[in-house]
Each structure stands twice: as C-alpha cells, then as structure tokens.
C-alpha cells in the first residue's frame, strides 16, 4: 500500500489557498492534516473545508501531530525560523515558499540544520520547476555569451488570479497597518520586490550571469515594482516589473547572446494552474526550437520532486547548495539595488 503523507500548512493565505491546495488536490499520496495561521478566522475557515484542525501558532500545530511534510506559506520574514523549528520537530520534507530565507546568516543556519537532519527541501520557485523552462534550459545552456538578459513582469493585481484559482478566504479588513517606521522608502521597496518577485527570474538568470559586479541603475516603480539594470560576470541584466496596472499578464525572459544565440520565453503568472512556460530558443547554429506549452506547471512539479525524494529517495532536482546559492544571489542583488538607490553601487569585495 502506498503511504499517504500528512501535510501541515503554515500560513493559510493566498499562496496556500490558491497555489498549494489546488495542486495537492491533483496529487495522490498526500493528505492535509492541519492548518496554521495567526489569523485564526482564516485558519479555521480554510481548515473547515478540509475537515482538519486549525492552529494559531506553529507549536500548537506540532502538538496536534508532527506532519510528514510542512508547507511554509507565511510572510518572508518567518521562513527561516519556521524551517528551523520544523526541522528540529522532525518533519521529513519541507516545501518552503520563495524566498527561502532573507539573509546570509539565515541561509547558514538552515543549511546546518537541514544537513544534520537530512530533511528533504523544495523551494516554491515554480518557474525553476516549470516543464517548459526545463526544456528551454537545455537549449539555453548551448547559447554563447556574452549575454544581454531582459526580465519583464507586468501583471494585474494578484487578487485577479487568486479568485480564479479558488474560492478565496480573505482576512477581515484591518485598520491601518504597516511598519512602525512609516511606509517603506524606495530602497526598501526595491529590496522587498527583488526578494518577492524578481526572485522568480533570478535562478534562471544565474545560469547565464553567475555573479554580480554592480547595479548600474535601480529605481522603484509605482504602483509597485522595480526598474534595474545590473552588470555581472557574463553580461548585462535588465529587470523590470510593475503591478498592478495592466489586465493582460506579461511575464517574459529575453536572452540575447553572441551570433544568433537568443531566446524569448513567456511564463504563466503566479496562481495560474494552466500549463507551462512557452517560447523559442535560437541556437548558435541558427536553428530555432519552439518550446510548446506543457500541460502541467511548476507547482505540480515542485510537489512531484518532493514526493519523489520522500518515497523513492530520489535526488532533489536542486540540491540544498544550489537553492542556497540561488537565494544568496538574490540577496546580493537586492542589497546592491538598495545601495544603488542610496548612491553606492559598487560591490564591496
């Protein structure tokens, strides 16, 4: 008989409801066993639809029973401490939403703990698992540099996608929130936006531009987003994002290299369970290969990777050192961008 893994959901917000629950509904061998969210109304509403207990904090969830798998869908600042708690509690696998952690110290701490316990880890960076990207990546590896890379993300508000992915339970409207220090300044905004959104594209770009040299230009874009140009070993990278403000999602990665080397790839936005990336790659010999959309998406592939690790002892697609390097690459860029806005753009090495 095939084992059914129990799943604990940490954070019951949009990502849990509109990404992981619809994905889990497709998969065999998994069963949600508990839902935790400090907003108990949200935790209870989500738990009720699944017929499982709700918890207001992580200790309470673990007391109800340590799940085999934990999904971390909480705000970014909590990821590292929750990973440490879950690893110590003995969960077998963790699907942690991007960004895995927010600082190099956190990266070091979770690396030590995960290596010691042998916990399986998958980062919820769906485009890195997207079957269309994986097909394209084989071809992109053949392109010749130096490269000019252009990542553009223009999206409607997230709610538009969330509401199409599920019947969302939202928290009751709260009073004015925000940090005690007032609204974030442009450097903080861009830092947050790199760690929150650009981080989807950065692991793909790291294969072409493995290290940063400096950020040439960085600015926050209203209503929310960034406009950055950075140079690194291997070429130049432009990162542009702005949302909301359009009604047609437009998420692209363009790559231009030496000779005919070029690629134009389109990605499905977050929350969309409707197939993979698509586009085309032109190789150094001039041959153009189409990347047709695959029927599944990166969300399903993330889970399949984690389940294969747990059931078959399969090697992860991305070993721990790889996902740590991915997040350090993003942390460095976010720091350089924030510093560029504050007027210092050189990498201090």
């Amino acid at each position: 008989m095939v084992k059914t893994f129990t799943v604990g959901l940490i954070g019951a917000g949009p990502v849990t409801q509109a990404i992981h629950l619809p994905t889990l509904a497709r998969l065999d061998g998994v069963r949600v066993a508990g839902v935790m969210d400090p907003d108990m109304a949200v935790a209870q509403a989500v738990a009720a639809t699944l017929d499982v207990p709700a918890a207001a904090n992580l200790d309470q969830l673990l007391q109800q029973g340590v799940p085999d798998i934990a999904v971390i869908g909480s705000p970014n600042a909590f990821h590292a401490t929750q990973i440490l708690t879950l690893v110590q509690a003995g969960v077998r696998g963790i699907l942690a939403e991007k960004p895995l952690v927010m600082t190099p110290d956190e990266a070091q701490a979770i690396t030590a703990a995960i290596e010691q316990q042998g916990t399986a880890l998958v980062v919820g960076a769906m485009h890195t698992y997207d079957p269309g990207w994986l097909e394209a990546q084989e071809l992109v590896r053949q392109l010749e540099g130096p490269f000019h890379v252009r990542s553009t993300i223009y999206l409607p508000a997230n709610a538009r996608f969330e509401d199409r992915a599920t019947n969302m339970v939202r928290p009751a409207p709260a009073g004015p929130t925000g940090s005690a220090g007032g609204p974030p300044n442009p450097a903080q905004l861009v830092h947050g936006a790199v760690m929150g959104l650009a981080i989807h594209a950065l692991p793909l770009i790291r294969g072409l531009i493995p290290a940063w040299e400096r950020v040439e230009h960085a600015a926050a874009l209203a209503p929310w987003g960034y406009n950055m140009t950075a140079t690194g070993r291997g070429g130049t990278v432009e990162l542009l994002a702005r949302m909301p403000g359009t009604w047609r999602p437009d998420w692209q990665l363009g790559i231009w290299g030496a000779g005919t080397s070029q690629a134009a790839l389109n990605f499905p936005p977050s929350y969309v369970h409707n197939g993979s990336a698509w586009g085309q790659v032109t190789l150094p010999d001039g041959a153009t290969k189409a990347i047709a959309p695959h029927l599944t998406n990166g969300y399903v592939a993330e889970w399949q990777d984690l389940l294969a690790q747990l059931t078959e002892g399969a090697a992860p697609r991305y070993p721990l050192v790889h996902v740590i390097d991915d997040v350090l690459y993003a942390i460095e860029l976010a720091g350089l961008a924030a510093a560029a806005i504050a007027g210092e753009s050189e990498v201090a090495r």
């Binding site: 000019h148 406009n227 070429g235 130049t236 432009e238």
Partner: peptide
C-alpha cells in the same frame, strides 16, 4: 548603460504627467 549587444536608456517622456 552599455551592454555587450547594445544599450539601455533611462529617461522621461513628456505629457502633463511625466512618464518614466
């Protein structure tokens, strides 16, 4: 900003509300 295959420009366009 020059890139290996061209260049990137930041500027402002006219209109009552200046556009990046």
């Amino acid at each position: 900003t020059a890139s290996p295959h061209g260049f990137v420009v930041e500027a402002t366009a006219g209109g009552a509300a200046r556009a990046g």
